[in-house]
Amino acid sequence: MKRAAFSQPLMPVALLLPQLVIIAVFFYWPAWEAIYSSFFLQDPFGFGSNFVGANNYTRLATSSEYAKVAGFTVFFTVIVTVLSLGTALLLAVKADKVVRGAKTYRTLLMWVYAIAPPVAGFLGALLFDQNIGPITDLFAFFGYNLQIGLNYNDTAFAMIVVSVWKQIPVNFIFLLSGLQSIPVAVREAALIDNKSGTRRFWDITFPLLAPTAFFLLIINITYALFDTFGVIDIMVKGNPASNPITLVYKVYTDGFRGSDLGGSSAQSVVLMVLVLALTVMQFRMLERRIHYT
């Protein structure tokens, strides 16, 4: 068999170069800058900087406030991922069975997908507003005084509801197409073996859906960690105070609002490491149990 090869050794390098340059400029350079400046305290305008060693990191490690934010981030990520995937799965399974008007029904369920996170946050902020929000009124009707922006748990509740609501359509679309790609023959064979719908779902449908679900799991964790920024920003109205925030939002408040470049660089390095660890873990632990064919 003839091996395909480049006659000139430089050719493959030249072909790779554009991609390498893009990665270097947009990924490695900023990452390096963040790591570098995390060891300094610098004047916001760039006039002076002081090398402070690992000080920016040790202060994070000893800060109970940072630990609190990290704790909420984990909680928030798990809840948002579970709820948005779970709800979407339920909707997808039910939508898969709809025969009449299926298209209209599905389109309606996908609508929310088109809404940008800040807009979703804004809608949420209006609905949950302390003084004029209809949802606040609804809760008041049942005797509960919902106070977004003041009560920690209430604000967390509203953030989770809006974030989940925003993410369901994405999951729904993927899960539905995953369901529809399961061969009819397999389903019919399963029907002969077992009458119980629940049992058939967990034994046959769900494992076949696993590749899609695994992909969505990663997408959802990333969404909850990073893309909910817009929702949170609108919900706390630019004034975090005692409201729950995520690690990404804290990078923003300290770095952009507070001009503490060294401190927020250290925080973003922590996030980089977290994402790296998550990715490695997910692929190592979960990939083996999933069969793609």
């Binding site: 507003d129 302390q130 003084n131 004029i132 106070q147 922006g149 003041l150 109205k237 004034n239 105070a241 005692s242 409201n243």
Partner: peptide, 16 residues
Amino acid sequence: GFYGASWDDNATPFQQ
């Protein structure tokens, strides 16, 4: 009345 750290949340009840 205390309605949190937001400017508007505290101003609105007065305006209302």
